[in-house]
Amino acid sequence: MYSPSPAERFFEDFHQRRPGTTSAAFAHLRSDRHESSYAALAATLLPSSSPLTVLDLACGNGYLLKLLDELRPGRLHLIGVDMSQTELDVARSKLPNDVRLLKERAQALSITTASVDVVVSHLALMLMDDIER
């Protein structure tokens, strides 16, 4: 059976006590070219006339998912993964019902191989244990 690492336990505790902290800290920080680091990441999605499936690893409170949904309404199938149920609960309260939210670790996804077109992650990969996985 899986046992969370000390870092994972820290992040689970932190996000349970302070959901939405990451988006509150970064959503308003502008650059010369983008409204925020979230907007910069969203801009990396290639324009496409066909629907895309986008996976947001460590989606937190769903800020990036909501931005993607607003930028390309009806053209993205969105999936968010986070290990914090508290963050996912906040995300669910503000996202459309068709956005799929999963309480999972990025290192052990239940998503079918090759079922996603694009993977995004805002400031999370650097914090994950066992990043090769």
Rank of each mutant, 00 (worst) to 15 (best):
D129A: 14
E87A: 05
L68S: 01
A43G: 03
L125C: 12
S115K: 05
S110K: 05
G20W: 14
V81L: 12
L123W: 10
D98C: 02
R100T: 15
L95Y: 05
Q85M: 13
L76I: 08
F11E: 01
Q85A: 12
S84L: 12
F11A: 03
I131C: 01
A106V: 15
H28W: 11
M126G: 15
E87Q: 13
I79Q: 02
R100F: 15
G74M: 05
S31K: 01
D130C: 01
L64D: 02
D98Q: 07
P51R: 04
K66M: 07
M1D: 14
S115T: 07
I111S: 03
G20P: 13
L29G: 05
L45E: 02
E35F: 09
T53V: 10
L67W: 07
L41W: 04
D13T: 14
R9P: 05
T113S: 08
A114H: 10
S121Q: 12
D98W: 11
L55Y: 03
H122T: 08
G60D: 13
Y38I: 04
T22E: 13
M1K: 11
C59E: 00
D69C: 07
P73H: 09
L52Q: 15
E87S: 03
L65K: 00
R9N: 06
A106M: 15
T21L: 03
F11R: 01
L76P: 01
E70P: 02
H77G: 09
L68Y: 09
M128H: 13
L127D: 15
D89P: 00
T86N: 05
M126T: 12
D89H: 09
P6N: 07
A124E: 06
H34R: 01
D82M: 03
F11H: 04
S84G: 08
S23F: 15
L71D: 12
Y63E: 09
P73L: 08
T113M: 02
P47R: 04
T44Y: 03
S110R: 06
L46I: 05
A40F: 14
E35S: 10
E87D: 01
F26V: 04
R17M: 10
A114E: 14
L76W: 06
A91F: 13
Q16L: 07
S5P: 13
H15N: 03
L68E: 02
F11N: 11
T112M: 02
V99L: 04
T21P: 08
E35Y: 07
F26K: 07
D82G: 00
L52F: 04
R9L: 01
L125K: 03
Y63M: 10
L102Q: 11
V99N: 06
D13I: 06
I79M: 14
A39T: 05
